[in-house]
Amino acid sequence: LVHRDAVETALAAAYAGDDLGGAHAAVAAASVYTVETCAEVIADLFRYGGGRVLSLASPLQRYLRDALAACQHIGVSEENYERLGRLRLALADR
């Protein structure tokens, strides 16, 4: 929902012809949060899945690998949090 809300806000700003700098930064930060949260949930499921999830035949193996790979994608770098923070701090000075 966090990610969907950020995307809907950015889309509304785009349709309105507004500056997308803040909306883009919010979508990027929401993407990082979403990917990290999903990876944590899958890691917990894997941990509590017991010995049977250690089998390569377990779909949880693939889910965990995919989630961890997504965390390494440049588009969901934690630098997006910094970018959004800097933008919001600059807006707070106005």
Rank of each mutant, 00 (worst) to 15 (best):
L1V: 11
V2L: 12
V2W: 07
V2Q: 14
H3M: 11
H3Q: 11
R4S: 06
R4H: 05
R4E: 04
A6D: 04
V7N: 00
V7F: 05
E8D: 14
E8H: 10
T9A: 15
L11Q: 11
L11N: 12
A12C: 00
A12T: 06
A12D: 08
A13L: 07
A13P: 07
A14M: 07
A14W: 03
Y15W: 11
A16N: 05
G17Y: 04
D18F: 06
D18L: 10
L20H: 01
G21L: 08
G21Y: 02
G22K: 00
A23H: 09
A23Q: 03
A23E: 02
A23C: 02
H24A: 14
H24Q: 10
A25Y: 01
A26C: 02
A26Y: 03
V27D: 00
A28T: 03
A28G: 04
A29V: 05
A30T: 02
V32R: 10
Y33V: 13
T34V: 11
T34Q: 15
V35R: 04
E36D: 14
T37K: 15
T37F: 11
C38R: 14
A39E: 04
A39L: 05
V41R: 09
V41S: 03
I42C: 01
I42Y: 00
I42G: 00
F46L: 04
R47A: 09
R47Q: 02
R47Y: 03
R47V: 01
Y48N: 14
Y48A: 10
G50Q: 01
G51S: 09
R52T: 12
R52A: 11
R52I: 13
R52D: 06
V53Y: 06
L54G: 04
L54Y: 06
S55Q: 13
L56K: 13
L56P: 04
L56M: 09
A57K: 13
A57H: 09
A57E: 12
S58Y: 02
Q61C: 05
Q61M: 10
R62C: 06
R62N: 08
Y63R: 15
L64P: 04
A67R: 08
A67F: 05
L68V: 12
A69P: 02
A69E: 02
A70I: 02
A70R: 14
C71L: 09
Q72V: 04
H73C: 00
I74E: 09
G75E: 02
G75H: 03
G75W: 00
G75I: 01
V76D: 01
V76M: 00
V76E: 00
E79D: 15
N80E: 08
Y81S: 05
G85S: 07
R86V: 12
L87S: 01
L87E: 03
R88D: 05
A90I: 00
A90T: 08
A90H: 04
A90N: 03
L91E: 14
L91R: 12
L91A: 10
A92D: 12
A92M: 12
D93R: 13
